[in-house]
Write a protein that binds this DNA or RNA. Structure first.
Lengths: 135, 135
DNA sequence: CCAGGATATCAGTGTTGACTTATATAAGTA
DNA sequence: TACTTATATAAGTCAACACTGATATCCTGG
């Protein structure tokens, strides 16, 4: 299963959001998810398994509890894939766009860059619809 | 369909990779995809439709040809979602990690931050497996 | 106008994955 | 040891989605 497939599920995204604030037990995660998505405990456990198997989360056993934590490597890979598109919205940074307020910063021009061709019909709409973190 | 679901499909990811180099006609995209994935023309067209409908790509008609181009907004949103995890691999930047060579840069600490709790069992493996861009 | 190329849509099919209930395993507790 | 809590696994069901073949639409050139 590809990294983007893992992140395609809203429950798994929410679990990772929870883990972003620090490690949590399976039970604590299950409580939150069950309240927000109304699914069963096994369903949550299966999502945790997927996150484990795909390397997005790691587990630490302490007695009967399992503490889950974010594992950054796959997320970093996703971020790396986005690199090739970043110029599409970061080029506006030169004009002091709002991205700077969101905490991004301009990249130094890469030394041995690719051909890069033309910049593709720059349909610069500037639309930034923040309809995320559903449910 | 959520942005991550759109990116979950390898064909759609590949199409976006092609568009990252500049706009392309439906036919040109279809040729490459058919060669790499062995799927039919309607299949490619349906993927293009999904990319259109979800805002990842825009179309420009020129005679009978349709020129597709990357539309950055949804990709930027995906990138924004990753923000909350970025510290997990960027904190190593202070130690001059390899990320810097990849063109990233450290963020200035955000002003009104969240609780942030503990940093979650920092299992800092340093593993950076670059097994991406399959097929 | 008609043939042919470029692209999209339609209807149907198969596979995958997320869910359910039931149950297993392991660890605390009395 | 027996009971309960914490978590995982198993087996089966159902819906979503990606594909195919057929066909429609729109352009262009003879």
């Amino acid at each position: 299963m590809h990294a983007f497939d893992i992140l395609g599920d809203p429950v798994r995204r929410r679990i990772l959001e929870l883990l972003a604030d620090g490690e949590r037990t399976s039970g604590a995660i299950t409580d939150v998810i069950r309240a927000e998505f109304a699914i069963s405990q096994p369903a949550v456990s299966q999502h945790l398994r997927v996150l484990r198997d795909s390397g997005f989360a790691s587990v630490r056993a302490e007695g009967a509890r399992r503490f889950y934590a974010v594992e950054p490597a796959p997320l970093s890979e996703v971020d790396a894939w986005l690199d090739r598109f970043r110029r599409f919205w970061e080029q506006r940074l030169d004009a002091l766009g709002t991205e700077l307020a969101r905490g991004r910063c301009a990249r130094p021009p890469r030394a041995g860059g690719e051909p890069a061709r033309q910049a593709g019909s720059g349909t610069d709409t500037g639309k930034t619809d923040p309809s995320s973190t559903e449910a």
